[in-house]
Design a protein around this nucleic acid. Structure first.
Lengths: 344, 344
DNA sequence: TTGAAAGCGCTAACAG
DNA sequence: CTGTTAGCGCTTTCAA
């Protein structure tokens, strides 16, 4: 079964290959008579010709492909979507890309792994990287010479565009909400707290809110692990072991909250009766949970959409123009928090 | 910033481009002296050369790319991952592909949309399609001339490889379990029941189990909508409106179950006190739920892995050799079912 | 053991 | 308005 090429179409239509190319691409610099245009279209349909985008990108220097790199959250963990947040984000990215005539080249990445493959190699027109940290590999990417958008990363580098949320402010909001509800001892539960990552910002917001209220940050109230359900489970055990000191917790991801609530329940600790929880993300899980989670809502769909738009704009632009985009956050009240009055 | 090509490497190493190609690909038909090989490697490293896979695929006829098509479950719904099942499946596919040196070209698809783009266009080495139905577009894909693996589809066509699960048997198992627990009136709740889809098989399994137990299939016990949380919610309302006739339900997807339980709870109907539920899939949600879901477990990771393996094997094979793969299922008992004794 | 040359399918000047 | 020509970056006979 021979692949039919532009030449076959040209022959069929009795024109040259370039003419076919012109009508197919509506090349603005060339004008084609209605007559030949029709003949070409007819030939295309007759032969069911579909252009080879690979070849096209080779000569035209653009591929209508966007590379998406999603971090492998935990080494050795094969599932990139242990956090549903990624799934929702990817959905939005894919949808937006498709609407704009772009396809997605998807790759998970171990942190120590060379990103280059996906970039330089496939001639992508741009790259979206989710939650990454500075490093050799990241720098190597610059050489790909295509726009790069960092989602949820605090890597500061004018060569990269970024899109994120008000992590610190969101955390502050969440913590303050708990304080307003009368809580004085509030746990902080998150994935690893690392420079350039979102969790350190959220930790800062948490600290700020406590300080503003004249409360002390206690080391033993901070739980830091991995962003997954299992860690939530583990945190619940830890919480009990440490003597249930806090009456509330700010948890920095819904998926952790799910595990945390489950773990608490298994130990007979009630939410929100014994401990109140404010979560973060507002993935669909948050609403499905029992009790449903009071959580800091972020617009994941918008984040994905914006990421694609940034890539496309940057790809179009002549000059590199560094762009930063910060999306707002708001608190959604559900059932995981109750007023607290210190027992007298 | 000029992209460096194989020629630059050749010049640097003082050899020809073809020689560079030989050492890079370990071309078996050519033998290269240790001496030159070293020089080439050195040049590659010095220039940080990364081959352009696009160009390679153009001349070599293979791309190390696998196309993945995920159906847009509902028209107008932009999120391909409204069902976490897809996320888990994609995770596994991506991981397996990456381990084998393949990248993924990802695309959602409206049903009426032409699949061809992703296929012929980009020169993928194979295609994985999730949950599709027969149609023109599907047939058009054959012309791409690459192996195609259908996941969770009952399209029978020797040109396609398939991988699925024992849908009918799983449903039978689930329903029988409820019957064994004493239930006599059992609802069936699923997405659309359509020929060539999984739900019709599950419906058949449900019917079989009822018949075997001498129970009648009642039209009013069948709820069919869309595979998402919202429909679960809606089904709960419907269930109440129809007079709460059943004491148990077999729900064909965990994500629907989540909504169903939530909807029931909102109406003061308790699970499993008032109604027992057996679900399907065993995505991570199932265990997070409250109550945790008794559900038919399928090995989603294995499904994804197998899908990739099928593609790769078929791509390697000379002759087209139709393969079907059916994965086993088993029931996981959790907290959403209770014994039922007819009130006397 | 290596290199020259043709070509994968397409686009983009440049002529005509 | 259309065709010729020269690549894009790589692989792959075929000769040397």
């Amino acid at each position: 079964m021979k692949r039919i090429s532009i030449k076959d179409v040209a022959k069929e239509a009795g024109v040259s290959a370039s003419t076919v190319s012109y009508v197919l691409n509506d090349t603005p610099t060339e004008s084609i008579s209605e007559e030949t245009r029709k003949r070409v279209i007819a030939a295309v349909q007759k032969l069911e010709y579909v252009p080879n985008l690979n070849a096209r990108s080779l000569s035209s220097r653009h591929s209508n492909l966007i590379g998406v790199l999603i971090p492998q959250t935990e080494p050795g963990k094969e599932f990139m979507f242990s956090n549903p947040f990624y799934g929702e984000l990817l959905s939005s990215i894919e949808y937006t890309a498709r609407q704009n005539g772009y396809h997605l080249l998807l790759s998970g990445t171990q942190e120590d792994q060379c990103y280059l493959n996906i970039a330089q190699n496939r001639g992508v027109d741009g790259i979206i990287i989710v939650g990454t940290y500075p490093g050799e590999n990241l720098n190597a990417l610059k050489r790909a010479g295509v726009p790069i958008v960092l989602v949820d990363s605090y890597v500061k580098d004018p060569d990269f565009h970024t899109i994120g949320i008000e992590d610190k402010e969101g955390a502050r909001m969440a913590t303050r909400y708990l304080i307003e509800k009368g809580h004085r001892r509030i746990a902080f539960i998150s994935g690893s707290i690392r420079e350039y990552g979102v969790n350190i910002k959220r930790y800062q917001g948490y600290c700020d809110a406590l300080k503003e209220a004249g409360l002390a940050v206690e080391e033993s109230a901070v739980y830091s692990g991995t962003v997954d359900y299992e860690y939530g489970l583990a945190a619940a055990v830890l919480y009990a072991e440490r003597g249930r000191k806090q009456t509330a917790a700010f948890v920095t991801a819904d998926v952790i909250s799910m595990g945390f609530v489950k773990g608490l329940t298994q130990q007979g600790i009630g939410v929100p009766d014994d401990i109140s929880i404010v979560s973060f993300d507002d993935v669909y899980l948050a609403n499905m949970a029992y009790p449903s989670l009071t959580t800091v809502h972020q617009d994941i769909g918008e984040k994905g959409r914006k990421a694609v738009e940034l890539v496309l704009e940057a790809a179009k632009a002549k000059e590199h123009q560094h762009t930063e985009c910060i999306l707002p956050l708001h608190l959604v009240e559900r059932d995981s928090v109750r007023e607290w009055r210190e027992p007298t």
